[in-house]
Design a binder for these strands. Structure first.
Lengths: 192, 192
DNA sequence: GTCTATACGGTGATAGAC
DNA sequence: GTCTATCACCGTATAGAC
């Protein structure tokens, strides 16, 4: 059974927003990509493009949050390894998508930070949820909570920036180089 | 004497692109902000919006390159201090501009990475020039050249990501936290 | 040579057919 | 209740007035 129309619209939006940005993507293009008739958009999202954007950001955000947990669970006892895996997986995904699949939030976040409070706030919440997820794992590895929170922010910043550079350059090197150095930082902070 | 019309158009473009993105900024808005009549745009930029974008990216890029050099020169003997200053200055500029003045390249880079080769290439060149500038200073402080290049990439990634987070959150904390940790990384790499 | 007025396509949004 | 046909508007680009 194929996903319902509403979900297809949400996922088509998320994909197009991350490739082309929010302003650069038309609603017509979204309905076409989602295989949904034009009229259904305003049926499911009466708030128009902005509501669709807010929900698409939240949707992508929670999908990636689950992916974080998956990667962390896979190497439960080695948090540094998990962070490294995450950079590695992102590099592969980016390359395999012909450099289209970067961060699903960052492009929209930069576009709307000064132009739409509802959208900006949706991005704030996603970033916060990601940071919290990373911080919890670092704390679980024995790093004091306050320090774990700062390190999580640092990891996410380095990760986001590396995606910007790798996607622009069409080269996984920024992600690989940054992963190595960030892993070194985290390794030095672990107790024992 | 006021700058010439062409330059005003270029700088208005650069400012609007960084606040709202490339797709989200109209040519009408650019001419209005630059105090230039509508017709002058296609006189100075016959290649239309894309040419204007390419030149605006290059213009911002070289302005920031000069700023890099200025900050590095100010504390010539302490490259870690310079990097820290750069994060600090960016945090101040971001806050003082009411969270509008982030990176003049990153927003456009993410928007166009999959949609315009000329624009993407302009962004590639700017990032490369910035990395090279940082790498040269790190090498000058005694770090082997290959390692200096990797560290420069790392610094730029962390910096770009921190701007994304700080601008989205409207909080200088990501920039401050990341600056501290990156400074620590660099400090540990210096000889002596 | 510089720019005002206009063309044409695509945008987000809606009213009314089924 | 679901969606097709249409709207008014703004986007980029251009032709021709000065």
């Amino acid at each position: 059974m194929t996903r319902d129309t509403r979900t297809r619209l949400l996922e088509a939006s998320a994909q197009l927003f991350r490739e082309q940005g929010y302003a650069g993507t038309g609603l017509k293009q979204i309905t076409a990509a989602g295989g949904a008739p034009w009229g259904s958009l305003y049926h499911f999202f009466p708030g128009g493009k902005e509501q669709l954007g807010v929900e698409a950001v939240a949707h992508s955000g929670s999908r990636y949050l689950r992916l974080f947990d998956l990667v962390f669970d896979r190497a439960e006892d080695d948090v540094v390894r998990s962070v490294r895996d995450f950079f590695q997986l992102s590099a592969e995904a980016l390359h395999k998508s012909d450099w289209a699949d970067g961060c699903p939030i960052a492009t929209v976040a930069l576009e709307v930070a000064s132009t739409s409070e509802p959208l900006r706030h949706a991005c704030v919440e996603v970033f916060a949820s990601w940071r919290e997820s990373i911080a919890r794992r670092l704390a679980g590895a024995g790093i004091p909570e306050a320090r774990a929170a700062d390190l999580a922010t640092y990891v996410l910043c380095a990760f986001e920036g590396a995606i910007v550079l790798s996607r622009t350059d069409r080269d996984t090197r920024p992600l690989r180089v940054t992963a190595d150095i960030v892993a070194g930082t985290l390794g030095a902070e672990l107790p024992g």
